[in-house]
Design a protein around this nucleic acid. Structure first.
Length: 425
RNA sequence: AGAGAGAUGGCUGAGUGGUUGAAAGCGGCGGUCUUGAAAACCGUUGUACCUCACGGUACCGGGGGUUCGAAUCCCUCUCUCUCUGCCA
């Protein structure tokens, strides 16, 4: 959520930044109107409350001295009616304001390339190169079927399309991948491991800025008012919701593995085969709570923590810097990491690393106390970053395809062998 | 799921209608003392919003109500604990 004060004090800047994202800036005008109405009423209301408080104190004194207070009580009663009326007006305006604010995305950082959509994203790095295969590569579905390690049909029987079933060495390979990634983050990259709930309540979903805007894309259990998390970003971020952190504890880096659930509403017919777009997938997530001045350095660190895994796995990848028009809702700056698919002959997104600055922390109320030089303390919002490190489904596509042999087998990547205890599928 | 108890500041824990934003203790911060540290002593220590400022308003799990006035009374929701049931 954006800071209403920023809109109040610098609406032109906000409009300008929203335009860069291709957003309609008319909403800013509506917000300004609601905000100024609210302030006007608030001033009146607070004045009336002050009067009432004073009158009540006087009544208390009169009662104490056994004086008749009925006139004062009758007068003050009238104040109460007025206060009640203004109170409900304020409440309505605040609801209206929130409704508008909840749908406004984060403002892009200065450094983000300007562009309308994904075609204007900027490739910032390519690592490794395409292998020149001497045979026609099979795709992951074919490989999964012939080696009996992935069974999309039976996954569909169990839950529906987009709910993959891993079998035998495929399941072991998946688990190896997850363990390898987590181990690296925990023992080498300085993250604290967590295992979180995979269901989250509405407050948590709102704090992570997934609801209300993306509510239709979430699995929702009505009976208990719980959402299946679309990413561990939601559950990990909420570890510190409504908390004031200690300055010396920052940055706090967490990593956790969870299943992730997405309805992918509206994306039917696009990249639907196999792992390319699924409703349930596995992901090792990275979340970082840090001081504002550190967040862009932390973003680069997280990017390199994620890409390092692909280098260890020896998988050809590239890093894309998203342009202003393609940024995610909560992000001020974002890198995508894409892996090469030999069978699809294109790049697949395997990770996204974002700096959400104070956009989520404002709504989640995650703050820290900054020690000033004069011994005073100031409460400030932390910056929150998230990144996949990594999501396995598309990574598995790239891995299976690039490690396949001409006779249709899979060679296990060197770094995974100690996890799989086999070298070949 | 049934019965009962409860939810107060960073923590423990008082407070049942009126200067209570909230006792006390612990912790934190600043200081005195000390070669240094500990102990002791003194002071200080919630969040948010409005206001150029003085200052004001709100907040004792959430929401609503009663009242001139609510942490305190009523309704409702959520959560926690104990017992019973069920269960990996």
């Amino acid at each position: 959520m954006l800071d209403i004060k920023l809109i109040r004090d610098n609406p032109e800047l906000v409009k300008e930044k929203l335009k860069l994202r291709g957003e309609d800036d008319k909403v800013i005008h509506r917000i300004q109107k609601i905000d100024s109405d609210r302030l006007e009423i608030l001033h009146k209301l607070e004045k009336l409350k002050e009067l009432r408080n004073k009158a009540s104190d006087e009544i208390a004194v009169m009662k104490k001295n056994k004086l008749d207070a009925s006139t004062a009580i009758n007068q003050t009663r009238l104040l109460g009616d007025e206060i009640k009326e203004l109170d409900s007006q304020i409440k309505n305006l605040e609801t209206e304001l929130e409704k508008e604010l909840y749908y406004i995305p984060a403002l892009p950082d200065e450094s983000v390339p300007i562009g309308k959509n994904e075609t204007e994203n900027v490739e910032v790095k390519v690592w490794g190169e395409k292998k020149s295969l001497t045979f026609k590569p099979k795709d992951h579905i074919e490989l999964g079927k012939s080696l009996d390690i992935l069974d999309f049909d039976r996954g569909t029987k169990i839950a529906g399309s987009g709910f993959p079933l891993y079998k035998g060495k495929g399941a072991t390979l998946e688990r190896a991948l997850i363990n390898f990634m987590l181990d690296t983050h925990i023992s080498k990259n300085g993250y604290n491991e967590v295992i979180t709930p995979v269901l989250a309540n509405r407050a948590s979903m709102e704090a992570a800025e997934k609801v209300p805007k993306f509510e239709d894309d979430m699995y929702y259990i009505q009976r208990d008012d719980l959402f299946a998390i679309p990413t561990a970003e939601v559950s990990i971020l909420n570890i510190h919701r409504d908390e004031i952190l200690k300055e010396e504890e920052l940055p706090m880096r967490y990593s956790g593995f969870t299943n992730c659930f997405r309805r992918e509403a509206g994306s039917y017919g696009k990249d639907t085969k196999g792992f390319l777009r699924v409703h349930q997938f596995n992901k090792v997530e990275l979340i970082n709570f840090c001081k504002p001045e550190d967040s862009y350095n932390e973003l680069e660190k997280m990017l390199s923590d994620a890409t390092r895994l692909l280098e260890d796995l020896n998988i050809h990848y590239r890093v894309i810097e998203l342009c202003t028009g393609d940024l995610g809702f909560a992000a001020s700056k974002c890198y995508d990491i894409e892996v090469w698919s030999y069978a699809e002959d294109k790049w697949l997104e395997a990770s996204s690393v974002s700096n959400c600055t104070d956009f989520q922390s404002r709504r989640a109320k995650v703050r820290f106390k900054r020690h000033g030089g004069d011994g005073k303390q100031k409460t400030e919002l932390v910056h929150i970053l998230n990144g996949s490190g990594l999501a396995t489904s598309r990574l598995m596509v790239a891995l299976l395809e690039s490690y396949q042999t001409e006779d249709g087998h899979i060679v296990v990547p060197e770094v995974l062998k100690k996890y799989t205890n086999f070298e070949r599928i």
